[in-house]
């Protein structure tokens, strides 16, 4: 098999996977934070907040990710004019477009993935015995404190393994960013397939192996983390 493209300076395989890693890390951090907020809203006593969060989750997670990413670019950025990077006049707009599209993709991944994080955490909240929240209220903690100090920490510890699955899905989902021209691994694969059509198998093997190298340890780490974090009752 011909792997010569790996040493071709036109194709930066490691660089492309580095973009994949960056997409994943920023999206994961944002999705975790937004997911926790959504989960908190879904269990809060204010009906309006509960309804809003429930609506967001049920709408967003039932739209295909490809649509969300393309919508970020076509609707949110082009139609509504959201700028996530500064464009310098007189300079080649490619750098601006790269940053803008990267950030739009991250925002799209955060919105999409946070709904799955929210639902995982909500199922974790159901594993926390009601007595824990009652005891916290009886001590005099406010609703936010009960949730933030007693319920959510236990709920999140209970769903470390499912959150690992969400993260693995996110790593692979970042390939959708190629739809709006973010130069991550899948976009490089498309370029390679066009330019080096005779090396299809080799290209496929390299890109697939790259994703396995990223995703497999993630699963293992979250598996052992889940054991350590679990709350003994």
């Amino acid at each position: 098999m011909d792997f010569s493209f790996l040493s071709d300076p036109r194709y930066d395989v490691l660089g492309a996977f580095w973009v994949t890693v960056q997409l994943t890390v920023w999206s994961a951090i944002g999705a975790f934070i937004l997911g926790v907020v959504l989960a908190a809203m879904r269990v809060c006593p204010v009906p309006l907040m509960r309804g809003f969060a429930g609506g967001v989750v049920n709408i967003v997670r039932n739209i295909p990710l490809t649509l969300i990413i393309i919508m970020m670019s076509q609707v949110i950025a082009n139609q509504l004019g959201l700028r996530l990077a500064t464009r310098q006049p007189g300079v080649n707009p490619q750098a601006f477009l790269d940053t803008q599209n990267f950030r739009l993709a991250v925002l799209g991944f955060i919105i999409y993935t946070s709904t799955f994080v929210c639902e995982a955490i909500r199922s974790g909240i159901n594993t926390v015995p009601p007595g824990q929240a009652e005891a916290a209220r009886a001590v005099g903690l406010t609703f936010t404190q009960v949730l933030g100090i007693v319920v959510l920490p236990q709920a999140i510890r209970a769903v470390v393994a499912p959150l690992g699955s969400v993260l693995i899905a996110l790593i692979k989902n970042t390939t959708v960013a190629s739809a709006i021209g973010v130069s991550e691994a899948a976009l490089l694969m498309n370029t390679l397939l066009e330019n080096e059509a005779d090396k299809f198998t080799a290209v496929f093997l390299v890109i697939a192996a790259g994703f396995i190298v990223l995703a497999l340890p993630t699963g293992l780490v979250f598996g052992s983390l889940a054991k350590k974090a679990s709350v003994k009752r």
Binding site: Q132, E134, A136, A138
Partner: peptide, 13 residues
């Protein structure tokens, strides 16, 4: 108002 429950309800974590 201090409260003591049948099932203790100590914060498990």
């Amino acid at each position: 108002v201090g409260m003591v429950f049948q099932s203790f309800n100590l914060f498990a974590h």
